[in-house]
Design a protein around this nucleic acid. Structure first.
Lengths: 106, 106
DNA sequence: TATATTTGCAACCGAATAGTTTCATAATTA
DNA sequence: TAATTATGAAACTATTCGGTTGCAAATATA
């Protein structure tokens, strides 16, 4: 069973769940109301998100409130980071080209 | 056939390919040398990455050089953006708490 | 206490995934 | 021209994935 954050956010329903509970903590029932699939399907998604620690639970009586584990989201950001460096460099290079052109014009 | 960037980067081999060709353009053969699976398997990964426009090809004779489509990578960053806002806010709130504590100490 | 509610788990199913082997095509080289 | 090299496509396979239905456990309410 592969269970990492990238595999977790590959599914559009799970991405939507993350966006939902990022705004406020929610119970599985409340989350499921936003989707066409069954509550059990959403429950399975929540299990996957919990297993890779992208969400955490808080039991309150018979209800369980799910909330986002924002620190784990940073790991995805960390992976993107190495590419961000590239596009920022390319942007600066473009900037250099533009300013060189400007100087030549003068 | 679902073919979006999140599904594309879900596979660890594809993520490694992206990191590899981010540094320099490479041919499928050169890329495949870095993995234990067959050249054909890598070829399939490249097709998926090409289909969702995360990489582009440039034919040179019988060789094909693959390079990263950095703009497409920004789309992932864009999705992370909404969560970045959250963790920055939380960080600031923590900052407020700390400075309040500091003031009380004085 | 009996009933309703909230939730997760197990078993099953069809589709998708990632890999393999085999083959075809096009370009280079001997 | 013949052999070699670089590549992608097709067919097949085992495994995983996302969904379903049915069930059990725990808590709340009548």
């Amino acid at each position: 069973m592969r269970r990492d954050i990238f595999q977790a956010i590959a599914d559009p329903t799970r991405r939507a769940i993350l966006v939902l509970i990022a705004v406020q903590t929610m119970t599985p029932n409340a989350i499921a109301e936003n989707f066409n699939s069954t509550r059990q399907a959403v429950s399975k998604h929540l299990r996957i998100l919990t297993e890779c620690e992208l969400v955490k639970q808080e039991q309150k009586g018979r209800e369980i409130y799910y909330s986002i584990e924002i620190d784990k989201m940073k790991e995805i950001d960390k992976w993107i980071e190495q590419f961000r460096k590239i596009w920022e460099t390319r942007f600066n290079q473009l900037d250099d080209v533009l300013s060189t052109l400007k100087k030549k014009k003068k």
